[in-house]
Write a protein that binds this DNA or RNA. Sequence first.
DNA 1: CGGCATCCTTATGGATACTG
DNA 2: CAGTATCCATAAGGATGCCG
Lengths: 144, 144
Amino acid sequence: MYTTPDLRELGGANAYLRDCASRSALDLLANKWVCLVVGALARGPMRFGALRRLLDGITQKMLTRTLRDLERAGLVDRTVYPTTPPQVEYSLTSLGESVGTLLGAIRGWAEEHMHDVEAARARYDERAARPVEALSANAPTARG
Amino acid sequence: MYTTPDLRELGGANAYLRDCASRSALDLLANKWVCLVVGALARGPMRFGALRRLLDGITQKMLTRTLRDLERAGLVDRTVYPTTPPQVEYSLTSLGESVGTLLGAIRGWAEEHMHDVEAARARYDERAARPVEALSANAPTARG
DNA sequence: CGGCATCCTTATGGATACTG
DNA sequence: CAGTATCCATAAGGATGCCG
């Protein structure tokens, strides 16, 4: 028979799930544009307009917001050259460069495994498309 | 399938920014609940109700959706035991376990650097609160 | 050039009720 | 127990216009 997991061993708090550093880090980094901006700046300092052109598809609003968030988090330095017209250059701090390293790890995983994910999704979708697959009558079965 | 990110090439396409494996990976993993569910299942197989109680705060809707996404992506196996009442057990696939490793890397970065991020944010906010800081008159200056 | 402010559309996600 | 379906509030994000 199958044994039910004993939740009492976990202690009532469950605090590790609700208040973990990873969660905060993901709140910061798990952002559509953050990884792209950091990845772009990992190549070297870049001006606002250059970033906007490079990250084709980003709106000015989101680029501004993303850069503010990154600057506030200490990942990006913002330097204003008081010329006319003004030039604003963005660059990674050392902290930001460490994020670049992390993004490299994510990219490594992605390049190694994302095609597996795509294949799994294709299989899942095809299986969902077929009405009733030849499922062996014996239990237990997936997708019963 | 995915374009290989060559950050040194700035050729007009910018394809690496719009269609990179990292982006797809983040679309999958950069989710509030995904990391928690994967983290929970990294401890071992768990039933639906156990997950719901463990991830205190998650709604049934989000747990179901998250598990479906993870199952479709091939990170999670779903096994139905045709008992009464029914039991549905979720477990990580080997692919899912590799994600757990990645989440470990993120947690490592988070535990090493998030307090720096918090400090940077505190400094930023305090600086924003003060009206006009003593800024050295020489260019270039940050926050001009 | 590098923003900020505003409007508006679309996701995201919670609450609730019902089912095999 | 393990879901599905529905409604609804809020937030994310794009389009546009104006400014120093």
